[in-house]
């Protein structure tokens, strides 16, 4: 799981995101970073540091004010592709799975329907094949018997595991996690992190915004520390946790690692 600069999957350059009247709040203030294939890149930082905004910009749930995001050779931050045609963002989003803090399962659909909606409607996979795949994935996360359940019948940890396999149904090239355990009761955090760890061991490229420092240290191949819309420090988990350089990182770690 070593960082390999030869396999850049996402290349972010000079990304800015301004909010508020006259754009005076800079959620992202010139972020440049490369995400490498097979890496588990963990983004940490205090709240309001821009880490979620960065993650949500990667699949353009947030539209950046300026800068570029090159994903698999295409600058998706531009509205047009290389030949000048309007960019079909949906095609690129299919290859980036996303898992949200609040799960965002569809309450009106069963677990299997949640998982097969996008494959059937977007990829035009036939229903039987999609359902078979869904059941295989559910089995992998220990939820083989919950396929017919509705989200409201699941615990938080189960919901998040379903959300993870729902994103995997599209066979994405990268998985984005936006504080996946922050809304969970403490006793359910472990089961979700376990699924994420297995995914990482399977070689999935992952970008994870989290407050779980244990996960960052154990599973992360690289840790990025953000503060005030900028990347302040970027290195291996060992370097970040055992030998922090920047005073703001030291201060942050002092507060979260007791």
């Amino acid at each position: 799981m070593a960082t390999n600069p030869n396999n850049t999957l996402i290349s972010v350059r000079d990304l800015e995101k301004h909010f508020g009247k006259g754009g005076d709040i800079k959620a992202l203030n010139g972020v440049s970073v490369d995400i490498y294939e097979g890496d588990v890149t963990v983004v940490i930082g205090p709240s309001g540091s821009g880490k979620s905004t960065l993650l949500r910009s990667l699949n353009l749930l947030e539209e950046p004010t300026s800068g570029s995001i090159v994903f698999e050779g295409v600058d998706i931050a531009k509205k047009k592709d290389a030949s000048g045609k309007p960019l079909n963002l949906d095609e690129h989003r299919q290859k980036m799975g996303m898992v949200f803090q609040h799960f965002n399962l569809f309450p009106h659909l069963s677990v299997v329907e949640n998982m097969t909606l996008a494959p059937i409607k977007v990829k035009k996979t036939n229903k039987e094949a999609a359902e078979k795949m869904a059941l295989t994935l559910l089995d992998r996360v220990g939820l083989a018997d919950r396929g017919a359940s509705y989200p409201s019948q699941l615990s938080g940890g189960q919901k998040q595991r379903v959300a993870i396999v729902r994103a995997l149904m599209m066979e994405p090239d990268v998985m984005l996690f936006d504080e996946p355990t922050s809304a969970l009761d403490p006793e359910m955090v472990g089961e979700v992190l376990e699924v994420m760890k297995e995914l990482a061991l399977g070689g999935m490229t992952m970008v994870v915004v989290t407050h779980e420092m244990g996960f960052a240290r154990e599973v992360g191949s690289r840790v990025i520390f953000m503060d005030e819309g900028k990347i302040v420090e970027d290195g291996t988990p060992q370097a970040i946790f055992d030998n922090p350089q920047h005073p703001r990182l030291k201060d942050f770690l002092g507060k979260v690692l007791i």
Partner: peptide, 21 residues
Amino acid sequence: DIGQTEAARSMGLSSRQTMQY
């Protein structure tokens, strides 16, 4: 909740499909 739309769009559903399904 806007999260429903975000989840659907993140999987590649178009805005029309997101509305419909």
